[in-house]
């Protein structure tokens, strides 16, 4: 944390020449992110979103860009354990955070997360584009513990749109994992 203060106190130079097309862009800002358990030192421009950083710089294409405006949920990842829209998070503001994407949910030996298994079991997707966001969101929902019934699951999954309309099976998949966890 002390190191972080040092780094940020100095601020970063503004982009004086941008409008005229001149070269000087602001310096890239050094940040540290732990992505799917791996700690990484990165350099980012202040306007790079976490979504673009994951996809373009880290080749983690599982997280999807849908609307890019926080309306569809396809870009949902876990930031310090909480589900958020990575398209609306500037990467620089998440310095020091732990990020979990769809690629980080399975165990290192390849065993899928119970919710991933349940999505397959319940046929909870058609085209699959929204699926990584749906699953990250569902994993967080299970941990949060606010939703107990199918109706509540629907409300708490309302931030994830599915244009194929696989909602019924998505709710079933989440409900099945919830039932197994409750039975434990």
């Amino acid at each position: 944390m002390a190191d972080l203060e040092l780094k940020t106190r100095q601020g970063f130079a503004p982009d004086a020449g941008h409008e005229s097309g001149a070269s000087a862009l602001p310096d890239e800002i050094p940040i540290t992110l732990t992505v799917n358990g791996r700690r990484q030192e990165l350099h980012v421009r202040p306007w790079t979103t976490l979504l673009d950083l994951l996809r373009e710089d880290m080749s983690l294409y599982g997280t999807k860009k849908g609307c890019d405006h926080g309306q569809c949920g396809a870009c949902t990842v876990l930031i310090d354990g909480q589900r958020m829209n990575s398209c609306l998070a500037l990467a620089v503001t998440k310095d020091g955070s732990e990020i979990t994407t769809i690629e980080g949910l399975a165990s290192p030996d390849g065993t899928l997360h119970p919710l991933q298994e349940a999505f397959i079991e319940h046929d909870a997707f058609q085209c699959g584009y929204c699926t990584p966001g749906q699953i990250c969101s569902g994993v967080a929902l299970l941990r949060e513990g606010h939703a107990k019934t199918a109706e509540e699951i629907r409300e708490h999954m309302s931030g994830n749109l599915c244009r194929c309309g696989a909602y019924t099976n998505i709710v079933d998949a989440i409900e099945s994992v919830m039932a197994k966890e409750t039975a434990k």
Binding site: T8, R9, D15, H18, P26, V92, D95
Partner: peptide, 18 residues
């Protein structure tokens, strides 16, 4: 998005100054 600089002040007083 337009280009901009970024600062993360460490205290409320620093933020107000910034």
């Amino acid at each position: 998005m337009n280009r901009f600089s970024y600062a993360r002040p460490g205290s409320v007083a620093d933020a107000v100054r910034e």
